[in-house]
Design a protein around this nucleic acid. Structure first.
Lengths: 236, 236
DNA sequence: CGGCCTGTTGATCTGTTTCAATTTGGGTGG
DNA sequence: CCACCCAAATTGAAACAGATCAACAGGCCG
């Protein structure tokens, strides 16, 4: 883990300024945020924080992919989300983190000390509103995931998963038809409530059906998005 | 559905004023809330709103139990939560509701028109903060449910479910060792991702083990809470 | 009293897991 | 630069938890 001092105008030149929470601040307010932020790097597989750690820091992912997870006493794991550049981490007025956050591959984050961040919140009301809006989005996403975990079969789960990644890639401005899967099959399995083997088998079924193509285990090309939508089982 | 005009000081005399969002308002601010609120009654099985309806109203449950659910195209259903008196409904800055809300048994709610509610939000900053805190709680609860749906077995699911209801009953000030299940077995099944039959069978297993007692299908007595904790599989 | 909805119990079936064996591919050191 | 190595992914066979299909019991209301 490497701490990088913030110097000069970090925020102004930030790649993800458009999509991150910072987007609600006016240019002239940015320096206030800049003053309390620093950058931090994590190597692949490093833990950013553990479930139940005191939540003293808030993060914004700027590079790489982060996985959030919870564990049962015997080691079974549920991944509750994957964070991409622009995503906010540590959202909450909580004493302790509700989940573990780990870097998948190389990750860079912005770091906000909790107390200073809260002070800024009081100062910029639209900041708090934006956070509430984020929380609402996350809540809606979590509910979609409840439906997926509770009621969908393996094929439906993976179709939904691929569509989710695809939509998020589009949102982040990536138009590449090839979809990148930064996480392992095991991570995917722990996200959609299956085993690695079932994930693997189901992917090959989708390949055999011509719905997707696996140019490498981490590279998916979606040939028939309509078919995925169909399989995902949702309306609209 | 019956609409009841709010007259006089509804809020001051409200049973659940302590636990509801209103709890953040000072007594002298209550009249402002009182001015925009009205009460509404729903009979058993009535729908309060449907998924994708425009979200023009916010609610606060004052009596009865409400179920929130999402459906797949073929009718499979996932219940995303049960609301008890004091719980807030419609939380979000969304255009449309993300789930359907239905009354289980007789229900009474407080109704806040969305526009007026938002105006109040701007006026009382602590109100917005409280909402964010609520959203955080819901998010944490949703993540627990993800773990349950994705990684727990039938026995673990139902042990967790009973403990959840039990904790919420305690929170609402009910010390009765007998736990009330206002929802049907089918509702429970759709909440924990099982079938009615499996729920029923698993309950009888818990009864046979002496962990719980079913004085009636809707009345559970928890004899061995430690055993339920054990079965639920979580730490702490 | 009878019909119906909810819950319980039993028998069978199936999708997914588990266990086990290969294959693939990315990273590293010679 | 290539060969090796190890983790990750794939594939196969067997086992199992929970679903499905089916029958029945009990309480509640008309």
């Amino acid at each position: 883990m490497v701490v990088i001092r913030s110097r000069g105008s970090v925020c102004e030149s930030c790649d993800i300024r458009e999509t991150a929470i910072c987007a609600v601040l006016r240019p002239e307010e940015l320096p206030r945020l800049n003053a309390i932020v620093s950058a931090q790097d994590f190597a692949a597989q490093q833990t950013i924080f553990y479930e139940d750690d005191p939540a003293e820091t808030l993060y914004n992912v700027t590079n790489g992919c982060v996985r959030l997870s919870k564990m049962l006493a015997d080691g079974r794991r549920q991944i509750t989300g994957f964070l991409m550049p622009g995503d906010f981490l540590g959202l909450a007025y909580y004493e302790n983190y509700a989940y573990t956050a780990e870097a998948i591959g190389q990750v860079r984050v912005c770091v906000f000390p909790r107390d200073k961040f809260q002070a800024l919140l009081g100062e910029f009301p639209q900041f708090e509103r934006r956070l509430l809006s984020r929380a609402s989005n996350e809540l809606a996403a979590a509910q979609d995931q409840l439906l997926l975990l509770g009621r969908k079969g393996a094929k439906e789960k993976l179709a939904s998963f691929l569509l989710l990644l695809s939509r998020r890639a589009k949102y982040r401005g990536l138009v590449d038809p090839a979809l990148d899967l930064p996480m392992t099959r095991n991570d995917i399995a722990d996200y959609v409530g299956l085993t690695t083997e079932t994930v693997s088998r189901t992917f090959t079924k989708l390949v055999d059906a011509g719905t997707i193509e696996l140019t490498s285990p981490q590279h998916v090309v979606i040939h028939q998005p309509e078919m995925l939508e169909e399989l995902a089982g949702e309306f609209g």
